[in-house]
Deep mutational scan, measured.
Amino acid sequence: MATVKFKYKGEEKEVDISKIKKVWRVGKMISFTYDEGGGKTGRGAVSEKDAPKELLQMLEKQ
């Protein structure tokens, strides 16, 4: 499965596409929420050019 690499609050993070719950576009950025486990929801964003094609496909399906 594909992963998304991004920075959040200065920390490098990587999340599996299957854990992503919601995806939306903000200008040229793709924002998303994902399941961190333990009932927590994380947030992240990547630029449109750095987003994996699976993430862009999720955006188109909504």
Results as ranks from 00 to 15, higher is better:
Met1Asn: 13
Met1Phe: 08
Met1Ala: 08
Met1Val: 11
Met1Asp: 11
Met1His: 10
Met1Ser: 14
Met1Trp: 13
Ala2Val: 08
Ala2Arg: 05
Ala2Trp: 03
Ala2Ser: 07
Ala2Met: 15
Ala2Thr: 09
Thr3Trp: 03
Thr3Cys: 07
Thr3Asp: 01
Thr3Gly: 04
Val4Asn: 00
Val4Ile: 14
Val4Cys: 02
Lys5Asp: 01
Lys5Glu: 02
Lys5Pro: 01
Lys5Trp: 02
Lys5Phe: 06
Lys5Cys: 07
Lys5Gln: 13
Lys5Tyr: 04
Phe6Gln: 00
Phe6Pro: 00
Phe6Asn: 01
Phe6Ala: 01
Phe6Lys: 00
Lys7Met: 06
Lys7Asn: 10
Lys7Arg: 09
Lys7Thr: 12
Lys7Val: 11
Tyr8Asp: 14
Tyr8Gln: 10
Tyr8Leu: 04
Tyr8Gly: 02
Tyr8Val: 10
Lys9Cys: 05
Lys9Phe: 02
Lys9Pro: 01
Lys9Glu: 15
Lys9Ala: 13
Lys9Trp: 12
Lys9Tyr: 07
Gly10Val: 01
Gly10Met: 03
Gly10Leu: 02
Gly10Gln: 03
Gly10Tyr: 02
Glu11Val: 08
Glu11Asn: 12
Glu11Leu: 05
Glu11Cys: 15
Glu11Ala: 12
Glu11Pro: 01
Glu11Gln: 06
Glu12Gln: 11
Glu12Asp: 09
Glu12His: 05
Glu12Phe: 11
Glu12Ile: 15
Glu12Met: 12
Lys13Glu: 02
Lys13Tyr: 11
Lys13Gly: 04
Glu14Arg: 05
Glu14Ile: 10
Glu14Cys: 10
Val15Phe: 01
Val15Met: 03
Val15Cys: 07
Val15Ala: 05
Asp16Lys: 07
Asp16Met: 09
Asp16Asn: 11
Asp16Arg: 09
Asp16Trp: 08
Asp16Ile: 05
Asp16Gly: 06
Ile17Ser: 14
Ile17Glu: 02
Ile17Tyr: 02
Ile17Trp: 01
Ser18Val: 12
Ser18Gln: 13
Ser18Cys: 14
Ser18Glu: 10
Ser18Pro: 05
Lys19Cys: 13
Lys19Trp: 13
Lys19Asp: 10
Lys19His: 15
Lys19Pro: 01
Lys19Phe: 05
Ile20Thr: 03
Ile20Ala: 02
Ile20Lys: 00
Ile20Gln: 00
Ile20Pro: 00
Ile20Glu: 00
Lys21Gly: 15
Lys21Ile: 13
Lys21Arg: 10
Lys22Met: 09
Lys22Glu: 15
Lys22Leu: 10
Lys22Phe: 05
Lys22Thr: 13
Val23Ile: 07
Val23Ala: 11
Val23Asn: 01
Val23Trp: 02
Val23Ser: 07
Val23Lys: 01
Val23Gly: 05
Trp24Leu: 06
Trp24Thr: 10
Trp24Gln: 12
Trp24Met: 04
Trp24Cys: 14
Trp24Asn: 07
Trp24Ser: 08
Arg25Gln: 15
Arg25Trp: 07
Val26Tyr: 15
Val26Gln: 10
Val26Asn: 12
Val26Thr: 15
Val26Cys: 15
Val26Trp: 04
Val26Gly: 04
Gly27Phe: 01
Gly27Cys: 15
Gly27Ser: 04
Gly27Val: 02
Gly27Pro: 13
Gly27Gln: 15
Lys28Arg: 07
Lys28Ser: 05
Lys28Asp: 11
Lys28Leu: 13
Lys28His: 12
Met29Gly: 11
Met29Pro: 03
Met29Ala: 15
Met29Phe: 03
Met29Tyr: 06
Met29Asp: 15
Ile30Thr: 03
Ser31Met: 06
Ser31Gly: 04
Phe32Val: 06
Phe32Ile: 11
Phe32Asn: 00
Phe32Cys: 06
Phe32Thr: 00
Thr33Ala: 14
Thr33Gln: 07
Thr33Asn: 15
Thr33Arg: 08
Thr33Ser: 10
Tyr34Ala: 01
Tyr34Leu: 02
Tyr34Val: 02
Tyr34Ile: 02
Asp35Trp: 12
Asp35Ala: 06
Asp35Asn: 03
Asp35Phe: 04
Asp35Glu: 07
Glu36Arg: 06
Glu36Leu: 07
Glu36Pro: 11
Glu36Asn: 14
Gly38Ala: 08
Gly38Phe: 14
Gly38Asp: 09
Gly38Asn: 09
Gly38Met: 11
Gly39Asp: 15
Gly39Pro: 06
Gly39Lys: 06
Gly39Thr: 11
Gly39Met: 07
Gly39Ile: 13
Gly39Val: 11
Lys40Thr: 10
Lys40Asp: 10
Thr41Lys: 06
Thr41Val: 10
Thr41Ser: 12
Thr41Cys: 15
Thr41Ile: 10
Thr41Tyr: 13
Thr41Leu: 07
Gly42His: 11
Gly42Ala: 06
Gly42Pro: 11
Gly42Trp: 11
Gly42Asn: 09
Arg43Lys: 11
Arg43Trp: 03
Arg43Met: 03
Gly44Ile: 05
Gly44Gln: 01
Gly44Arg: 01
Gly44Lys: 01
Gly44Cys: 03
Gly44Pro: 01
Ala45Asn: 10
Ala45Gly: 09
Ala45Leu: 09
Ala45Ile: 10
Val46Cys: 06
Val46Glu: 01
Val46Asp: 00
Val46Leu: 04
Val46Ile: 04
Val46Ala: 09
Ser47Asn: 15
Ser47Tyr: 12
Ser47His: 06
Ser47Arg: 06
Ser47Ala: 11
Glu48Ile: 04
Glu48Arg: 07
Lys49Trp: 05
Lys49Glu: 15
Lys49Leu: 10
Asp50Trp: 12
Asp50Glu: 09
Asp50Pro: 04
Ala51Ile: 05
Ala51Ser: 10
Ala51His: 02
Ala51Tyr: 01
Pro52Gln: 08
Pro52His: 04
Lys53Pro: 07
Lys53Ser: 06
Glu54Ser: 08
Glu54His: 09
Leu55Ser: 00
Leu55Glu: 00
Leu55Gly: 00
Leu55Ile: 13
Leu55Ala: 02
Leu56Gly: 04
Leu56Trp: 09
Leu56Val: 13
Leu56Ser: 07
Leu56Glu: 11
Leu56Arg: 10
Gln57Val: 09
Gln57Asp: 09
Gln57Leu: 11
Gln57Ile: 14
Gln57Trp: 14
Gln57Asn: 12
Gln57Met: 12
Gln57Pro: 01
Gln57Glu: 14
Met58Gly: 02
Met58Tyr: 08
Met58Ser: 03
Met58His: 09
Met58Cys: 06
Met58Trp: 06
Met58Leu: 10
Met58Lys: 03
Leu59Val: 11
Leu59Ser: 04
Leu59Gln: 02
Leu59Tyr: 11
Leu59Gly: 02
Leu59Asn: 02
Glu60Trp: 02
Glu60Gly: 01
Glu60Gln: 03
Glu60Tyr: 03
Glu60Ser: 04
Lys61Arg: 05
Lys61Thr: 13
Lys61Ile: 14
Lys61Ala: 14
Gln62Val: 03
Gln62Asp: 15
